[in-house]
């Protein structure tokens, strides 16, 4: 597969990682950090392969909004998109973690839901939906989890303002000087 060879070319210094090669997707490894870069359309198949390969648990699902930033440490053959869903898995036998970074375009922010494969991703995906507005297809109850149900917008997107307001001081002496003072 071309992706494999290209990924191998990308890291000439690193030894070939058989444990990461077998999923047929580009990968990178530095220290204890192991990352694979599955394509969005192949995400669920990759997840099934991960499950069958002994990655017991989906620890974390989150996302990053690279509005106009360069993605750090992204292989050159992967087209960068605005959103990136990041899922972390852990294996008891190997005692290591694996991270998957999936590019999700702004025009169609959808990705398959891990719920049927790793049911523990339920709340995590709801949080990503709430904070980034990324839809997880096949999720049983994709609704807001942290913000109120009628909230507008997705707060962790980079084009969503922090929403800080100037601090107001009530009854401050400056505004209402004492009479006769």
């Amino acid at each position: 597969m071309t992706a494999e060879t290209e990924a191998a070319e990308m890291q000439p210094a690193e030894t070939q990682r058989e444990d990461l090669q077998r999923y047929g997707v580009p990968y990178a490894a530095h220290g204890e950090q192991k990352v694979i870069f599955p394509h969005r359309d192949m995400w669920l198949q990759t997840a099934v392969a991960l499950l069958q390969d002994g990655w017991n648990m989906c620890l974390d699902v989150t996302a990053v909004d690279y509005l106009d930033k360069k993605h750090p440490a992204l292989p050159s053959d992967i087209p960068a998109e605005r959103f990136e869903v990041v899922a972390t898995f852990i294996s008891y036998e190997r005692k290591e973690r694996l991270r998957a970074r999936i590019q999700v375009p702004e025009a169609d922010p959808t990705i398959g839901s891990l719920y049927t494969i790793y049911p523990g991703s339920d709340y995590l995906e709801r949080e990503v939906y709430d904070m980034f507005g990324i839809n997880f297809e096949g999720h049983p109850d994709l609704s807001r989890i942290l913000m109120p149900e009628n909230w507008q917008g997705h707060p962790l997107r980079k084009d969503y303002a922090v929403g800080s307001i100037p601090v107001q001081f009530k009854n401050s002496r400056q505004d209402s000087p004492k009479e006769g003072a």
């Binding site: 913000m147 707060p155 969503y160 922090v162 601090v167």
Partner: peptide
């Protein structure tokens, strides 16, 4: 009292 260090979209800036 004032929102403290969390001056953002989520926190009411002062319960008063």
């Amino acid at each position: 009292s004032s929102g403290g260090m969390f001056n953002n979209y989520a926190i009411v800036q002062g319960v008063d």
